[in-house]
Amino acid sequence: MTQTRGYALITGASAGIGAAFARELAARGHPLVLSARRVERLESLAQSLREAHRIDIQIIPADLAERDAPRLLCEEVARRGLGVDLLVNNAGYGVTGYFLSQPWQVQADFIQVLMTAPTELCHRLLPAMRERGHGRIINVASLAGHVPGSAGQTLYAGAKSYLIKLSQALHLEYGPDGVNTCALCPGFTYTEFHDVTGSRAMMSKLPKWLWMDAQTVVRQGLRAVDRGEAVHINGRVNRMIKSLLKLMPDRLALALMGRQSRRIRKKKPD
Rank of each mutant, 00 (worst) to 15 (best):
residue 183 A to S: 04
residue 200 R to T: 15
residue 201 A to W: 05
residue 244 L to H: 01
residue 253 A to E: 04
residue 213 D to L: 02
residue 202 M to P: 00
residue 229 E to W: 06
residue 238 N to K: 03
residue 211 W to N: 12
residue 197 T to Y: 08
residue 189 T to W: 11
residue 250 D to V: 01
residue 205 K to W: 12
residue 227 R to C: 03
residue 211 W to D: 13
residue 235 G to L: 08
residue 229 E to R: 06
residue 255 A to Q: 10
residue 197 T to Q: 10
residue 251 R to Y: 00
residue 246 K to D: 05
residue 187 G to I: 05
residue 249 P to W: 01
residue 215 Q to S: 15
residue 197 T to R: 07
residue 186 P to E: 05
residue 209 W to F: 15
residue 200 R to I: 11
residue 255 A to W: 08
residue 244 L to P: 01
residue 233 I to N: 10
residue 187 G to Y: 07
residue 196 V to A: 08
residue 231 V to P: 08
residue 215 Q to A: 15
residue 219 R to P: 02
residue 197 T to A: 14
residue 233 I to Q: 09
residue 212 M to P: 01
residue 194 H to A: 13
residue 200 R to H: 12
residue 218 V to M: 14
residue 223 R to P: 01
residue 238 N to S: 04
residue 191 T to E: 09
residue 232 H to D: 00
residue 220 Q to I: 12
residue 212 M to W: 12
residue 216 T to H: 15
residue 238 N to F: 02
residue 189 T to Y: 10
residue 240 M to P: 01
residue 203 M to F: 15
residue 251 R to F: 02
residue 253 A to N: 04
residue 248 M to Q: 03
residue 186 P to W: 09
residue 194 H to M: 12
residue 211 W to S: 13
residue 218 V to E: 14
residue 221 G to Q: 09
residue 250 D to M: 01
residue 252 L to W: 09
residue 208 K to D: 15
residue 211 W to F: 14
residue 185 C to F: 08
residue 191 T to P: 05
residue 239 R to H: 07
residue 239 R to S: 08
residue 214 A to M: 11
residue 226 D to Y: 05
residue 195 D to T: 07
residue 207 P to L: 13
residue 255 A to N: 05
residue 233 I to A: 07
residue 210 L to P: 12
residue 228 G to Q: 06
residue 194 H to E: 13
residue 252 L to Q: 03
residue 211 W to G: 13
residue 183 A to W: 02
residue 186 P to R: 08
residue 209 W to V: 10
residue 197 T to H: 05
residue 207 P to E: 14
residue 232 H to G: 00
residue 203 M to E: 13
residue 249 P to R: 03
residue 248 M to K: 01
residue 221 G to N: 08
residue 232 H to F: 04
residue 236 R to I: 06
residue 193 F to R: 04
residue 183 A to F: 03
residue 255 A to V: 01
residue 211 W to M: 12
residue 213 D to R: 09
residue 249 P to M: 00
residue 244 L to M: 10
residue 189 T to A: 08
residue 183 A to M: 05
residue 208 K to Q: 15
residue 199 S to D: 15
residue 225 V to S: 11
residue 227 R to G: 06
